[in-house]
Design a protein around this nucleic acid. Structure first.
Length: 254
DNA sequence: AATAAGGGCAACCGCCTGTTC
DNA sequence: GGAACAGGCGGTTGCCCTTAT
């Protein structure tokens, strides 16, 4: 079977995401959900492959991602599950709330694999709780490669964020429209999507509730006034196209 | 201080699977 | 039943930072 490329490669950016791209993607997915990753970049005003957008969202921008140091329990879980499941990173990550398969995979290859080998050796013990740089990653904060990127890890339970009550519910999901977020990251703040502009309102919730958000189909909220979006995302300045222009828009408040 | 080496992690690539028509 | 498509997954790469020399 001849497969079409996931996207037209011409003119698409690759490599590290910029803060502006992050803002656009976050704003779009937060508001409209991931109704179609392949089409999404076009509507979100991004010169990126849809798969790249998906990966960026799932592994980095998604609000309930836990970042930073792994606990001893988490590392033991990874090692134990890998022994039983093999390299099924997504299955392993599913047992670690807030961790992504990519992150778990990276952590295994960069850290745990070595520890595991040493642990297997009868003369050595694993050095849990200490990375290769000793205490390089201080408790609570971590400076990432990107100077603009400050990630804060915290032992607090994750928060679930949802759109401001004053604005329509994001047409994104099941539990419907609530998205989960973690106060471990200040990424959203960096993106200018929280706090001052009141786009998100944090509240506590059951993390398990967020699970299907990412898998449920996206249904547009018929009550939403699309034009209100520009007021909420002034920085986008009209760069995002309305989705569903090709759909039955009956009931939409365009 | 300069450079090399090593390591962490974000992102890409290509294949697989599930769904729709 | 099969083609086309989208999403998911794991392997791998390459950039950039830290540490060692």
């Amino acid at each position: 079977m001849v497969r079409t490329p996931c996207c037209d490669k011409t003119g698409l950016r690759k490599g590290t995401w910029t803060a502006e791209e992050d803002r656009k993607l976050t704003a779009y997915v937060t508001r409209y959900g991931s109704w179609n990753w392949r089409q999404l970049p076009k509507f979100a005003g991004l010169a990126r492959c849809g798969k790249s957008c998906r990966l960026r969202w799932l592994n980095y921008l998604r609000p309930n991602i836990k970042r930073g140091n792994y606990s001893k329990e988490e590392e033991e879980t990874i090692i134990r599950l890998r022994e039983s499941l093999g390299n099924r990173w997504s299955a392993i990550a599913a047992e670690l709330p807030g961790r992504t398969d990519n992150e778990v995979k990276n952590h295994w290859h960069t850290t745990l694999k070595k520890r595991f080998k040493r642990k297997s050796s009868p003369t050595s013990t694993p050095d849990y709780g200490k990375d290769k740089n000793g205490d390089r990653e201080k408790e609570g904060t971590k400076l990432n490669n990107d100077a603009n990127r400050l990630v804060i890890s915290s032992p607090n339970p994750p928060l679930i964020l949802e759109s401001s009550p004053s604005s329509p519910q994001p047409a994104s999901s099941d539990q419907n429209s609530s998205i989960t977020a973690d106060n471990n990251t200040v990424e959203s703040s960096r993106l200018g999507l929280v706090s001052d502009d009141n786009l998100f309102e944090a509240y506590e919730g059951n993390e398990a509730d967020s699970g299907s958000f990412w898998t449920e189909p996206f249904f547009p909220d018929s009550s939403y006034k699309w034009s209100d979006m520009w007021a909420e995302f002034p920085f986008l300045d009209g760069e995002i196209l309305y989705p569903f222009g090709f759909c039955d828009l009956e009931g939409f408040n365009l």
